[in-house]
């Protein structure tokens, strides 16, 4: 079976600083895959490469078998990949409802339509309401996104990411900065909303990672030093040495 995401020998340099070195990663369809690694290891850069935000210096990236390196983000998104951002990246002046609805429009086939009333598209309305319900923001639907609390913005960020119904979801530190209770709620949300989809998640909370992921990749200095099931990663001496230390034991 072709992998959902296949990264082959990708390198990325900013100027003459090489950030990603010989990156190889394979994420199977339907898998929950966590990427862990110290700050500055290149996790967000990896997300940027896969989602088309930046182009690799060399190497190849495939989505469901199709080469996507070199495509623009919206082209990759239309092929079924959606990502969130580590730093909240929403439509600040638009309401919560409109934020989610915008993310629904392309996927429901309305594209650049200028002859349809957006308020009378039943499927769009229903899906938007469903997503708002899912991310627990129905009661905040008419609030401009810029006025939400931090945790609410993080939930909206997830909502926008999943709204288009992409088959591959990538979440970059979705729980960063959340309290323990908020994290638990967010993880339950992510688990439920990505049911039956492929998930790639960057996460620092090890209890979350080991509880959620089917497979884990460890990224250190732009290179994946280990990839495997949670048990394999736990027992991997290289990982222990480079990153996890005692915190897993």
């Amino acid at each position: 079976m072709t992998a959902a995401i296949q990264v082959n020998a990708v390198e990325k340099s900013f100027g003459n600083v090489q950030i990603i070195r010989d990156l190889n990663l394979s994420v199977a369809k339907g898998e929950r895959h966590a990427i862990i690694g110290p700050n500055g290891a290149g996790k967000s850069t990896t997300f940027n490469l896969i989602s088309g935000h930046i182009k690799p210096t060399s190497g190849e990236i495939r989505l469901n078998g199709e080469v996507t390196s070199g495509l623009r983000p919206f082209e990759i998104n239309r092929r079924g990949l959606s990502r969130s951002f580590q730093v909240t990246n929403v439509f600040a002046r638009m309401t919560v409802w409109e934020n989610v609805r915008c993310a629904v429009l392309w996927a429901t086939g309305h594209r650049y339509a200028f002859w349809k009333n957006v308020d009378s598209l039943p499927e769009v309305k229903q899906r938007t309401a469903q997503i708002l319900d899912d991310i627990h923001l129905s009661h905040r639907r008419d609030v401009p996104a810029g006025l939400l609390t931090y945790a609410e913005q993080r939930e909206l960020e997830i909502g926008i990411t999943i709204a288009g119904g992409a088959s591959v979801i990538m979440l970059d530190e979705p729980t960063a900065g959340m309290s323990h209770a908020e994290t638990e709620r967010a993880v339950a949300l992510i688990r439920r909303l990505t049911e039956g989809r492929t998930l790639v998640i960057v996460e620092h909370d090890m209890s979350v990672v080991f509880g959620l992921a089917d497979r884990i990749s460890v990224l250190v200095y732009g290179h994946i030093i280990a990839s495997g099931t949670p048990e394999e990663i736990r027992g991997n001496p290289k990982v222990k040495e480079a990153y996890l230390g005692e915190e897993v034991d």
Partner: peptide, 28 residues
């Protein structure tokens, strides 16, 4: 006014607010 109430009109607002993110919800 009607134009502002169409899918295109809504995405115009999204482009105004955050053109970068628009690329990640399928729009150029």
């Amino acid at each position: 006014y009607a134009l502002t109430r169409t899918p295109l009109g809504r995405i115009c607002n999204a482009v105004r607010d955050n053109p970068e993110r628009v690329e990640f919800i399928g729009y150029d």
